[in-house]
Design a protein around this nucleic acid. Structure first.
Lengths: 183, 183
DNA sequence: CAGTGTGAAAGTCTTCACAGCT
DNA sequence: AGCTGTGAAGACTTTCACACTG
């Protein structure tokens, strides 16, 4: 909306785009304050700003990527992070063949450097894109280096201590969810 | 569990792995029937079989991938589909540079072939891995070819008619969700 | 006696519907 | 007139706790 120069939007309009109810949108937003004007709706710029505050993305967050295979490379090359508040700051792998090679704007580093790198830079977000059998080991390593949130692409449940958040991206789970609804 | 030769599991054990309550697991499963034995738990093999039935993945589902960029390539090369009941049957792109090139076990086809291909093969699942600005066009095309479920990697909401399901994979949304919880 | 399946209770989320503001 | 913010109602989900079973 901002790109198209729109100044105001309403809960109804947003609901239409997202396929949810306008009441839902108003209720959710009201949880964090009163951002709208009766009769007018929400200021597009103002709402964006508020959402950035709520989501805690006014600062830029560095991320490390662990695993330089197909998925790790794709993610490292993804251009959608920068303008949404994230920045890939390093890519790691354990494969000597890959260490030193270039992926996107990054030189792949040795996984052995992860702990000192993360400790020093204070990075808190990691994306794990390694085979399932290495995911737990790598997660433990990342956590010991001070990582407190993990986005896991490996098709396995990684166990983490309290205080560390994990979210999983597994296309197969989505596909299975959809086939459930296909006769 | 099956790999490690385990024969039975309990709602408590599964709950521990998944970080949810055992009551949740029992309640969810009870929705679809009675699969457990009191005092013993659930047969690992039996439960897997039941879950496959419930999720409708006893058959193998073909998928088409639209977009042969970094993400599309990574997905096309992903080896995790086959043993979980899915099979990539074709990869499409609109870029003349990419059409004809080889990705994984596939030769990239012209997007113009999508409609006849999908109509003829009857494929119902598509993964969209194109830039945000092309996603809606490509989704409409896929739907016109009989696709009824879309897994969308583009960071944009695609609108679809009733009867078509869409799920989105956007790493940034996960990252934003996690930063909300990081002080 | 370990562990399921399940009503009932508690908790959470969504929708309704409208007073009130611009 | 148009649209927000919000109590109250309704719908749905999770947890509790226990009778019952292999």
């Amino acid at each position: 909306m901002q790109h198209s120069g729109k100044e105001f939007t309403s809960s109804q309009e947003m609901a239409g785009w997202l396929g949810i109810s306008s009441a839902q949108i108003r209720k959710d937003l009201s949880h964090f304050g009163e951002f709208g004007k009766q009769g007018t709706g929400y200021s597009v710029a103002g709402l964006q700003e508020k959402l950035r505050q709520i989501l805690n993305i006014e600062q830029e967050w560095p991320i490390v990527i662990i695993g330089a295979g197909h998925i790790g490379s794709a993610v490292a090359n993804y251009t959608g992070f920068a303008y949404r508040g994230f920045r890939v700051c390093a890519v790691f792998d354990s494969d000597a063949q890959k260490i030193g090679s270039v992926i996107g704007a990054h030189i792949v580093r040795d996984i052995a450097e992860l702990v000192p790198f993360a400790r020093e830079s204070g990075v808190r977000l990691a994306m794990i894109a390694v085979p399932a059998e290495s995911a737990q080991v790598v997660a433990d390593l990342a956590i010991s280096a001070g990582i407190s949130a993990i986005l896991n692409y490996a098709p396995i449940n990684v166990n983490v201590p309290d205080g560390v958040r994990v979210e999983n991206i597994d296309p197969v789970l989505h596909l299975q969810h959809m086939t459930y609804y296909l006769s």
